[in-house]
Measured scan of single mutants.
Amino acid sequence: MTEYKLVVVGAGGVGKSALTIQLIQNHFVDEYDPTIEDSYRKQVVIDGETCLLDILDTAGQEEYSAMRDQYMRTGEGFLCVFAINNTKSFEDIHHYREQIKRVKDSEDVPMVLVGNKCDLPSRTVDTKQAQDLARSYGIPFIETSAKTRQGVDDAFYTLVREIRKHKEKMSKDGKKKKKKSKTKCVIM
């Protein structure tokens, strides 16, 4: 069974824990209790493949930012979460993405942009803004509501699919490099 290491990042209060708990335990946590770091595991079937999701729910508070490099190193894919009623959390996505790329030393890291709290009427981040940002990053965008469960499975499952595509691409690139290195030079 394939294991996928997913990391949920975003500013404090955007609903990272609520999304994760909704996926794992099928219930909505409405009281806000700032996370330092929590880890969850769940076995699911995605596109006919049974897999184990190892999900790291991270601290959004700035005082825990020193811990970010460590979990970013171990993560295979990242859910970059903002709240649709919090423009600052949307603007912060850029910083999370840049930090992930720096730590992973790669421009090509599996990510999904997630606009959470889409059940709320007080939207300050337009869907088109988020779609445009995701398009500019070359990553999928999904709106979710941890409260109603809308888009929750889709967000995590899409990230797994992005990781699969990335692994497939990397193995193809690896095979191309191996083929090239088999060419021999004969000096007579």
Rank of each mutant, 00 (worst) to 15 (best):
T2M: 11
E3K: 14
E3V: 09
E3D: 13
K5L: 03
K5D: 08
K5A: 05
L6F: 11
L6C: 08
L6T: 06
V7E: 05
V8N: 04
V8P: 00
V9W: 01
V9Y: 03
G10S: 06
A11T: 09
G12R: 05
G12Q: 11
G13H: 09
G13L: 12
V14R: 06
V14N: 09
V14I: 14
V14S: 12
G15T: 00
G15E: 01
K16P: 00
K16T: 07
K16V: 01
S17R: 02
A18Q: 12
A18Y: 02
A18C: 10
L19M: 14
T20K: 03
I21P: 02
I21F: 14
I21M: 15
Q22W: 10
L23R: 11
I24P: 02
Q25N: 13
Q25W: 03
Q25A: 11
H27P: 05
F28T: 05
F28I: 06
V29P: 13
V29E: 14
D30E: 12
D30C: 11
E31M: 14
Y32V: 05
Y32H: 12
D33A: 03
D33W: 05
D33M: 03
P34L: 05
P34V: 05
P34G: 05
T35Q: 01
T35R: 00
T35E: 00
I36K: 02
E37W: 01
E37T: 02
D38K: 01
D38N: 05
Y40H: 06
R41P: 15
R41V: 10
R41N: 13
K42A: 10
K42I: 09
Q43I: 08
V45D: 14
I46F: 09
D47F: 05
D47E: 11
G48A: 08
G48K: 10
G48W: 05
G48V: 06
E49Q: 14
T50E: 11
T50C: 09
C51A: 09
C51G: 10
C51Y: 14
C51W: 15
L52F: 13
L53C: 10
D54K: 07
D54E: 14
D54C: 04
I55M: 10
I55N: 07
L56Q: 05
L56W: 05
D57V: 03
D57N: 03
T58F: 00
T58Q: 00
A59D: 02
A59C: 06
G60K: 01
G60Q: 01
G60D: 03
Q61E: 15
E62D: 11
E62G: 06
E63V: 05
E63K: 08
E63S: 07
Y64W: 07
Y64A: 02
Y64T: 02
